[in-house]
Structure formats: structure tokens, C-alpha cells
Design a binder for these strands. Structure first.
Lengths: 144, 144
DNA sequence: ATACGTGCAAAGTATTTGCAAACGG
DNA sequence: CCGTTTGCAAATACTTTGCACGTAT
């Protein structure tokens, strides 16, 4: 399986949308593709900077905005005032997160029954539901 | 049923915890008791001010902090950068929220199957889960 | 009387916006 | 070339903190 598939697809979809391949865009997309969990904008900014691939912080936010609009990344809010982003590699199989209140560790999880229950709620809500955010909080194995 | 039960219980629990009945504390608690949905700190502050019960914004935040710690209110993050708070009237029957992306309308919902599915996930997570936050997003009946 | 509570203003943090210069196609 | 993208700095928005004064107990 090709590990760089996502960044390629992202750049391709952006191009199709009339977006150019600017330096910041490529760097941020490339960075996101290397992550296996969600990251915040400031984190992306400082990591890229320390790797010698500096990018303006505003550009990071702008790139993330475009990616989120194209649904190439998922925004997530863990409740600490930082918006995090994660590459959407397999749109059909999405997952959620569980966060440790003590050490801040973030772990993903997926559950079919949960999704089915959510789908039912969504269908009976009277809303045209576009998405849902689920965050579990507690103490991780190491901290409790 | 007594509609002011919550504010009384809140003040009582705070007193038991060694907290005094300061003016800001009473006003914020009283205000929260009159709401039927979640509210943000700034909103509480300006509403109280326009009602002629002014309270310092910092005090609002401090009161909310104490209440959240004592689990008398629930924090919730709807993803728009504003932390909202809601009185916890019946700890055993909690609910979640669905938000309209267009008009910002917030509606509560509760679902037993969803809770059961969550409980299972929580038990198998390896975490000692303290709580969960669920937010559904979409277009409400009027906006879609 | 004396700790705790409050209000104001200043600081802190995350994010957004204005604008001139750089750059992709 | 020309419109898009970028980086910087300034602006915004929410929340937190420091500190002197007020007040509940």
C-alpha cells in the first residue's frame, strides 16, 4: 500500500479545484501525510520550522482551511481550545478519539454499533446531519 | 416540581465545599438556572449586565470553573471556539447536542441506544472513561 | 478580623485579516 | 504576465492572571 497516496490525492484535488502548488501548501500537506494522529496548526508550524521547511503560521491556517473545505482533512476539537486536523485517508471508515485528561494522550477508536446508533439518531433528528464529533475523556491505562 | 432546585443545590454544595456566597457566584448560578440550553461565559456576562446585575467577566469564568469542578455544570465545546456551560440537573440522564451550521441553532437530544453503544466502547477502551462529548452538525429543518 | 471573593486591567493563546512582495502556470 | 499564494505584522476573540479592594462568615 502506497503511504504517500493521500498527499498526492490532496494536491490533485486541489489542482482540480483551481488551486496552485504553493510552497506552504505542499509542505503542510506533506507534513499531514506523515502524521498518524491529529495535529494542531501551531504544532505543524513549529515542526516544519524546526525541520528547516519554514512556513508562515497564517499560511498553515489557510491551507488547513482549504483542505477542510474539500474534506481532505477532518477538523477536531478535543476541548482544550486547540483545533486539530487529521488527513482523511479512507472517507468511508472514520474513527473517533479518546483523550487522557492527565497526560493528554490521544488514541483513536472505531465502533460499528456506535455508528449505527448515531445514524438512527441523525435520521430522526429533523436535521440534515453533515457529520458528528465524538470525544471520550478519561484516564489512560498508564495514568489511572 | 421546583424549578429553582438546581441553584439551591449548587449553592449548598458549594457551601459544603467551603465556598462563600459571593455576589457574582449567586448571580451566575441564578442565571444558569433560568437557561434551558447551554450558554457561554461572555453571554452570561453581557446578559447579566443588561439585566442590571453586573458581574466581572473574570468572575464569571471563575464561578464556571468552580461549578464545573464540582460537576454542577457541564462544559461543552461545539467547535466554534466558545466553551459553553449547562446546569447539570439530573446527573443520571444526560443529553447531547446537535448544531445547525448555518443559523447556529442548538438542540438537545438523548438516545438510549447511543449511550449503550458508548458504554461498551468505554469499557473496552483501556481508559477509565470519565465522560464523553457528542456533537452532531448539520442543517436544521428551517435552514436546509 | 481575616481569609475568600470580586472587579478591573493587563497578559496570554489561538486564530484571522490586510497588504505588499514572491511565484506558479 | 497576472492572478494566486505567501509571510509578516496587526487585529480579533476568548480566556486567564495579578492585584488591590470589598465582603461573608
Amino acid at each position: 500500500m502506497n503511504t504517500t497516496a493521500w498527499s498526492e490525492r490532496a494536491l490533485q484535488e486541489l489542482r482540480a479545484g483551481g488551486y496552485r502548488r504553493g510552497a506552504a501548501r505542499i509542505r503542510v500537506i506533506d507534513f499531514l501525510d506523515r502524521q498518524d494522529c491529529c495535529v494542531g496548526a501551531q504544532e505543524i508550524h513549529s515542526e516544519l520550522r524546526s525541520r528547516g521547511e519554514p512556513v508562515g503560521l497564517a499560511s498553515v491556517y489557510r491551507v488547513l482551511d482549504v483542505l477542510a473545505e474539500k474534506r481532505l482533512v477532518q477538523r477536531l476539537d478535543l476541548g482544550d481550545g486547540v483545533t486539530r486536523f487529521e488527513a482523511v485517508r479512507h472517507p468511508e471508515e472514520h474513527h473517533h478519539h479518546i483523550v487522557c485528561d492527565d497526560c493528554g494522550k490521544i488514541e483513536p477508536f472505531a465502533d460499528q454499533r456506535l455508528e449505527l446508533a448515531l445514524r438512527d439518531v441523525e435520521e430522526n433528528s429533523g436535521f440534515a446531519v453533515a457529520g458528528h464529533d465524538i470525544v471520550l475523556r478519561g484516564a489512560c491505562g498508564a495514568c489511572r
